[in-house]
């Protein structure tokens, strides 16, 4: 039987001081082991939803459950279940990859021995072994993106939230990141991925939700979505469902 990794019910959210809801009446169910893409135009509510799912934003209306644990309760143990790869570089630029992994590993609550093992493993996977003691500030954009992901998975989370994980990287780096994410998923990690890169989403995700104006306008496998809406590709589907309007 498939375990529900994430279950969102009737979630609404309004930023303090604003009248218009950023999200309203949102429902979503993601099964463990899925590669789930969260797509939508700028301002649609993707980042807000990411922040709510990871507990960065407090909310009152609705429910978000991570493996059955309500996020509203602010139980720190739940934070061990997931990893987060924010869009911004989320590490200390003054420190080396090894130092960053050791620190974030400790904060993620894993043992010293496990940190040592995972640090070596992740440095090798991300190809950063040769620059292990160099300050991250001196890295290229692609290397920093890999670093960002490595820190997010150091504690072997069951679910990984990725917010635009490949933004600003070259084709080679993007390819290697996507390959790594697929491997990670094969080892059992559920991926929840948010991006503007539709071709990347097509490559990576087996299920997609399109979000527009704070609501989910489509949620299914890519094949089902394309056949249901009679579209040939994700880009044309995206444009037809988000009313082709510029949101910027």
């Amino acid at each position: 039987m498939n375990t529900t990794a994430l279950h969102i019910e009737d979630l609404s959210f309004v930023y303090p001081g604003q009248i218009i809801s950023s999200l309203s009446g949102l429902n979503l169910k993601i099964v463990e082991g899925e590669k789930f893409g969260l797509l939508g135009p700028n301002g649609a509510g993707k980042t807000t939803l990411m922040n709510l799912m990871t507990g960065l934003l407090p909310f009152e209306n609705g429910s978000i459950k991570l493996f059955g644990n309500e996020m509203k309760n602010k139980n720190r143990a739940v934070n061990k279940l997931f990893g987060f790869v924010p869009q911004d570089f989320s590490f200390y630029q003054e420190l080396s990859p090894k130092e960053n992994l050791e620190f974030f590993g400790a904060w993620a609550g894993i043992s010293k021995r496990e940190i040592k093992y995972r640090t070596e493993e992740l440095l090798e996977i991300t190809g950063l072994t040769e620059v292990t003691n160099k300050p991250v500030a001196e890295f290229s954009g692609g290397m920093k993106r890999k670093m960002n992901i490595a820190i997010g998975v150091i504690h072997r989370p069951r679910i990984l939230f990725l917010d635009e994980p490949t933004v600003g990287v070259d084709v080679q780096s993007r390819h290697s990141i996507i390959t790594y994410l697929k491997e990670l998923n094969n080892s059992g990690t559920t991926l929840i991925y948010s991006s503007h890169q539709l071709n990347e989403a097509e490559l990576l995700c087996d299920k997609i939700a399109l979000i527009d104006d704070g609501k989910i306008v489509a949620n299914d496998t890519l094949t089902n979505l394309l056949s249901h809406h009679n579209e040939k590709g994700l880009e044309s589907l995206f444009l037809s469902l988000t009313e082709k309007a510029f949101n910027d």
Binding site: V78, K80, F84, F91, F104, A108, G109
Partner: peptide, 14 residues
């Protein structure tokens, strides 16, 4: 104000 703070807030440590 750095990205590292965002990550710290999602980790199981006060």
């Amino acid at each position: 104000i750095s990205g590292s703070f965002v990550r710290l807030k999602t980790l199981p440590t006060n």
